[in-house]
């Protein structure tokens, strides 16, 4: 991917072009700022037989598992609605034996991505897990879930997890530019590692901003343009979860989803209504406003609380002073060239 290719496209084009059936697909986001509309589009296009990775497998995972497009799931945390009498799509799929699961701790999962993003083969993880069933009970990864090696320096036993390089990462961010520089702030989680470990990256964002905005705040960029394959502007793209500085979590809509997820029929009805029934995020938001009123939505909008800008300034931005002399050598360009000629520095040809 070239850095200055414009990668702005429609969401359906991005998903149809860069998500393939049978892919290892990773959810870039962690708990908040869920890539809700990207997940919905993957479901609408029925990209089946996915191996899905999610640091915290809650809203995103429930929707995809309920839609029947996930064969395997690697996560650290799953959702369950409605207490003991409730349930979840993950639980139902496990009981029906249509889903294979691998459980890690938050750190173990993130360590696999850190190894992947840096090009390492594996990552050292904390040995405490060896006392637990996380280590003893293996799912589809078998022996490769964890392996123990001898430290070449101390001789200690070291627990490791294998690097992970998913085929594609889908991720929602607050803002990006048209080239694919993607910025993120708030709770960093494992968001950057999930994206950079992946082979392809699809970015949706609340707004596409001018390249200048990115250049003036580079410390917020978590994905550099040359790694990004597609950029899609999707306002409210995380709803019902939240985006820092844009809108809060919608507890009403999220609660409605959780209530639905407790039963198979409930979640099927919810999918029909809010995912299959809405061709895109615009239609989804129109439906939301028609159902709950625009006031409900407006109440979620974030009030501004800006970070203090950092100063990227410097003493000068040119080696040449206003009087035309070079700062160190004290001569003008013309004078310098004359001296260079006199000293015979130019190549004779």
């Amino acid at each position: 991917m070239s850095q200055f290719n414009e990668k702005v496209m429609s969401l359906s084009d991005a998903v149809s072009q860069f998500v393939k059936e049978g892919d290892e697909l990773i959810i870039g986001n962690y708990t908040l700022c869920a890539c809700a509309e990207l997940v919905f589009e993957v479901v609408r296009q029925q990209k089946k037989h996915l191996t899905v990775y999610s640091q915290s497998g809650i809203f995103d995972v429930e929707v995809m598992v309920a839609a029947g497009i996930v064969d395997r799931l690697v996560t650290t945390y799953t959702m369950r609605s409605g207490g003991k009498s409730g349930g979840s799509a993950v639980e139902r799929a496990l009981q029906a034996r249509t889903l294979q699961l691998e459980d890690y701790t938050n750190y173990n999962y993130n360590a696999r991505l850190i190894a992947g993003m840096h090009g390492f083969n594996f990552m050292q993880v904390f040995e405490g897990v060896m006392a637990t069933d996380l280590y003893r009970i293996r799912g589809f990864m078998g022996d490769d879930k964890y392996r123990v090696i001898d430290c070449p320096y101390t001789g200690d036993k070291i627990l490791t997890v294998p690097a992970l390089n998913p085929d594609v990462c889908i991720i929602h961010v607050p803002r990006a530019d048209k080239f694919g520089n993607a910025q993120y702030w708030g709770a960093m989680g494992s968001v950057m590692a999930a994206a950079l470990a992946s082979k392809r990256i699809i970015v949706s964002c609340e707004e596409i901003v001018e390249h200048d905005v990115i250049q003036a705040s580079p410390h917020h960029t978590i994905i550099p343009a040359f790694r990004t394959d597609a950029v899609v502007e999707v306002p409210w793209g995380s709803h019902p979860t939240e985006v820092v500085g844009y809108y809060n979590m919608d507890r009403l809509a999220y609660g409605m989803f959780q209530g639905a997820a407790a039963t198979e029929d409930g979640l099927k009805t919810w999918l029909d209504e809010w995912v299959y029934g809405c061709p895109d995020r615009g239609a989804y938001m129109d439906k939301y406003v028609a159902t709950f009123g625009s006031e409900t939505l407006e109440n979620l909008r974030a009030k501004d609380y800006y970070s203090t800008p950092v100063n990227y300034g410097s003493a000068f931005t040119s080696p040449w002073k206003h009087d035309g002399t070079e700062r160190g050598m004290g001569v003008t360009l013309e004078e310098l060239e004359t001296i260079m000629e006199e000293r015979g520095l130019f190549h004779d040809c």
Binding site: R80, Y107, F126, L134
Partner: peptide
């Protein structure tokens, strides 16, 4: 584990924090 009555959230950070 492979045929759960109730699937609970999982470890999340718990196993490493208590360690």
């Amino acid at each position: 584990y492979f045929n759960p009555d109730l699937r609970l959230p999982g470890s999340g950070g718990a196993a490493d924090f208590i360690s």
